[in-house]
Simulated scan of single mutants.
Amino acid sequence: MLKKEPTYHMKPNPHIHPLCAEAIQKIVRMENPKFADFVALKTYGTDVYSAMGWDELQQYINEETIVIVEQFEDETNILSALRWVARGLPARYAMRKASADYSMYRYKGT
């Protein structure tokens, strides 16, 4: 018997690079994405979400994404994860992406 893949249909998003959309779909289809998969996930340039601050990103906070705000203490990580949600990455993966980036690059909030 073939294992049925989970269905996740990302709405087309004209505001992100097509390679970014493809990479998001790839991660979502993976059974168990690894740290390296999240580090490799890129925006392929600046998009409309890259410059979004707290005020604009609050529209993406809902029951599913509130865990992002609760998970991270650092506002930079919260904003990064919410930007990935805005791009179409599910919240559970957006948190892993933000954590992977922080772990790799140790960026500092301003």
Score class of each variant (00 low, 15 high):
T110Y: 14
V39E: 07
A81F: 03
K108Y: 10
I27Q: 06
S80L: 05
V85G: 06
F35P: 02
T76C: 14
S80P: 00
E22I: 02
F35E: 14
A100P: 02
C20H: 09
T76V: 11
P18L: 00
K3Q: 15
G109T: 06
L2W: 10
D37K: 00
N77S: 12
Y102K: 11
V85C: 12
L89E: 02
D55Q: 06
E75T: 14
Y102I: 07
R92A: 13
N13G: 05
A23V: 07
E22M: 11
G53V: 02
R87S: 00
Y8F: 15
H9N: 13
T43S: 12
M10W: 03
F35N: 11
K108M: 06
T110N: 12
V48M: 05
E73I: 06
A94P: 01
V48Y: 08
T43L: 05
G88R: 04
A86R: 06
S50C: 03
F38C: 01
M95K: 12
F38K: 01
V28M: 03
V67P: 00
W54R: 10
A21F: 09
M52R: 10
L19E: 11
G53K: 08
I61Y: 04
R96V: 04
F72P: 08
S50R: 05
Y44G: 12
W54N: 05
I68L: 08
Y102Q: 14
A98I: 07
K4L: 14
V28A: 09
D37L: 00
M30N: 11
T65N: 00
L41T: 01
M104Q: 15
I78K: 14
H17A: 10
S99T: 10
K97D: 02
P6F: 02
Y44P: 10
R87E: 07
A81Y: 07
Y44S: 10
R106A: 11
G109A: 09
K11T: 09
D74R: 11
M30W: 04
K97C: 08
Y49R: 01
P6S: 04
Q59D: 08
A86N: 12
P90Y: 00
Y107P: 03
N32G: 13
P33W: 11
D55G: 06
R106I: 13
P33F: 05
Q58L: 10
D101G: 10
N77Q: 14
A86T: 03
I66G: 00
F35C: 08
L41A: 05
S50H: 12
G45H: 06
S99K: 11
M104K: 11
E75H: 08
H9K: 10
E73D: 13
K34E: 15
M95F: 15
V28W: 08
